[in-house]
């Protein structure tokens, strides 16, 4: 029984901005299915009234004082950029948001 379709994988890849090939789609759909089947076993666990855990020691109210720290030198900030222009990061045209 399949829990995840090829189309669903394609949709997820779009959400995740991954341009996957047809072969990858086929392979992933099958592999994800196996993994998801294993995850379905969690459904049988009774977690009513159980609080979630995200960290070993629950930490609360971890704050920073509002005191400025040095920023990166601009050259260092821009150095990693694949394409920069006039101290900004250059990107290709962004798809039209407006009709």
């Amino acid at each position: 029984m399949s829990t995840i379709s090829r189309e669903e994988v394609a949709h997820l890849a779009r959400l995740a901005r991954l341009e996957v090939t047809d072969e990858e789609l086929d392979a992933f759909a099958g592999q994800l299915d196996v993994i998801l089947q294993s995850m379905k076993t969690l459904a049988e666990v009774d977690t009513d009234g159980v609080q979630p855990t995200s960290h070993a020691v629950p930490l609360v109210n971890v704050f920073r004082e509002d005191q400025p720290q040095p920023s990166l030198p601009r050259d260092a900030a821009l150095a990693g950029g694949p394409d920069t222009f006039e101290d900004r990061f250059r990107v290709p045209r962004i798809l039209d948001e407006e009709a």
Binding site: R64, P68, S71, A77, R88, F89
Partner: peptide
């Protein structure tokens, strides 16, 4: 004085990409 999650200044009108650090980049 500083950004939400890092110590970079929030002053308005600075030169581009001068108020950035590993966190906010």
């Amino acid at each position: 004085n500083t950004k939400m999650f890092c110590g970079c200044s929030t002053a308005f009108g600075a030169e581009p990409n001068t108020q950035v650090c590993p966190v906010c980049l």
